[in-house]
């Protein structure tokens, strides 16, 4: 299973700008007009890791083997991290958790027709 990083061919430490450039290059290589499947994959990958909030969510909840310590380090190693207060980070985590709880409920319980 390819990770979004694999699909966009970026390292996990890549900056927002680098990820975006990689995405734009990939899109030009696989425009939606001619590469329906690849484009959807590329776009989905970009949406998953385009900024800190989405990367955190992805790392926390999509990759089960993610090491929480690495993640924290990852989050605090960013220049922007200076401006992230503990409260803000907490909120970020909660947002992710809440989203996910909804998702689990949705797919596990399968709404009844």
């Amino acid at each position: 299973m390819k990770t979004p990083y694999d699909i966009l061919e970026v390292v996990e430490q890549a900056t927002d700008a680098e990820i975006k450039q990689a995405y734009l290059q990939k899109v030009k290589q696989f425009p939606p007009d001619h590469y329906h499947e690849q484009f959807q994959q590329i776009h989905q990958a970009y949406e998953t890791i385009k900024d800190l909030s989405s990367r955190t969510k992805y790392a926390l909840f999509t990759v089960p083997e993610a090491d929480f310590n690495t993640l924290l380090e990852h989050a605090f190693n960013f220049e922007q991290a200076v401006s992230i207060s503990a409260e803000h980070f907490d909120k970020l985590l909660r947002a992710g958790i809440n989203d996910k709880t909804f998702k689990i409920a949705a797919s596990d319980m399968t709404k009844t027709l």
Binding site: F39, K111, T112, L113
Partner: peptide, 21 residues
């Protein structure tokens, strides 16, 4: 039950599971 959300990039394909009652 929304399946494809507004402002999703095209083309897009989404699947949801449902069950009989």
């Amino acid at each position: 039950v929304p399946i494809i959300h507004k402002n999703s990039a095209l083309p897009i394909r989404k699947t949801e599971a449902f069950s009989t009652t």
